[in-house]
């Protein structure tokens, strides 16, 4: 659905995105993670044919960038970083204007459908200037969906929203995923990325890592299994460390934390060895690293500062 080949964008002497290669599958929710100024918004703008790449290209919804950008834009919905709504106009008027811009046939019907879907129908005649941030964001999402695009580009969809509004937006995105739409999501919210995204690309001008959230955890931290023992003796650590497949062993309080490649197949041998060494095993479990830890580890490897100025 989206194929990106060597996509690069420079603004004068600043490189915003460098040599991005990526393929996003139909129906996939793909998340870009990265610090401010990492090129996430620039990438989305290029994919939405809002700005031209300096080099490289991409094919989005069957259209190659720069060849038929109008057709591309007709098949792509964008939620921009700021809701960008006309405050003096009503919610319905905002949507009907954009429906005309997208060339929607049944403007009134489509506006009604999305206002109802997002719970804004009762307030359709009120000026958007009176809306809360959450309502504005919902209206902006409705606008991005009006022409029923096959590809949705969402830039920070829940930033600045209260938890309730953020949850509503996330549920809506989940609904869109269930409809089979291809969604590219820029977010700072790592928990959101973890829950919503099938795959994640960590971007800092160039793509640092690309995989499913689970695979990224494995790649960065390995898989860590914790063995809770009633009484931890020094020889138990040596017993576990003797296995050739064990990458690392740590003793923490009465627990052994063991890094493994394939715990499902390797755990039984470790358990048997510990029991025969006299250990009293209470629990065995896997430590789940948060995506935030994965992200911070990748960024610290890259030497990136957590926040820096945005590219233009």
């Amino acid at each position: 659905m989206i194929r990106i080949e060597g996509l690069t964008k420079r603004f004068d002497d600043i490189t915003a995105v460098e040599n991005l290669d990526l393929e996003i599958r139909p129906g996939e929710v793909f998340g870009f993670l990265g610090p401010n100024g990492a090129g996430k918004t620039t990438t989305l703008r290029m994919l939405g044919a809002l700005i031209k790449p300096t080099s490289g290209t991409a094919q989005v919804a069957g259209y190659r960038l720069g060849e038929d950008d109008q057709a591309l834009r007709r098949n792509v919905g964008i939620l921009t970083e700021a809701p960008g709504l006309y405050d003096r106009l009503s919610a319905a008027r905002n949507l009907s204007f954009f429906a005309h811009m997208y060339g929607v046939d049944d403007v009134d019907g489509r506006v009604e459908r999305y206002l109802k879907l997002l719970g804004l129908w009762e307030r359709r005649s009120e000026s958007v200037g009176t809306f809360s941030r959450g309502m504005r964001q919902k209206l902006a999402i409705a606008r991005a969906m009006l022409h029923e695009p096959t590809v949705l580009l969402l830039d920070e969809p829940t930033t600045g929203l209260d938890p309730e509004a953020a949850r509503l937006v996330r549920e809506f995105i989940e609904g869109l995923r269930d409809e089979g739409r291809t969604i590219v999501l820029n977010t700072h919210n790592l928990d959101e990325a973890d829950r919503l995204c099938d795959r994640i690309g960590v971007l800092n001008t160039r793509l640092l890592a690309l995989d499913t959230p689970a695979a990224l955890r494995r790649e960065v931290f390995g898989r860590k299994v914790v063995f809770h023992l009633a009484d931890l003796r020094p020889e138990f650590e040596a017993t576990v460390a003797n296995f050739p497949f064990v990458d690392a062993v740590e003793s923490i309080d009465a627990k052994l934390v063991v890094t493994l490649d394939d715990p499902e197949n390797q755990n039984p041998a470790i358990i048997a060895a510990l029991v025969s060494a006299g250990a009293q095993l209470q629990f065995v479990g896997e430590i789940r690293q948060s995506l935030e830890e994965v992200y911070l580890r990748l960024m610290s490897k890259e030497g990136a500062e957590p926040e820096r100025g945005d590219a233009p």
Partner: peptide, 14 residues
């Protein structure tokens, strides 16, 4: 100021 140009430019308008 209301940052409405970007969503407008994202439509097929020339």
């Amino acid at each position: 100021t209301t940052r409405t140009l970007e969503p407008l430019l994202a439509t097929p308008i020339t």
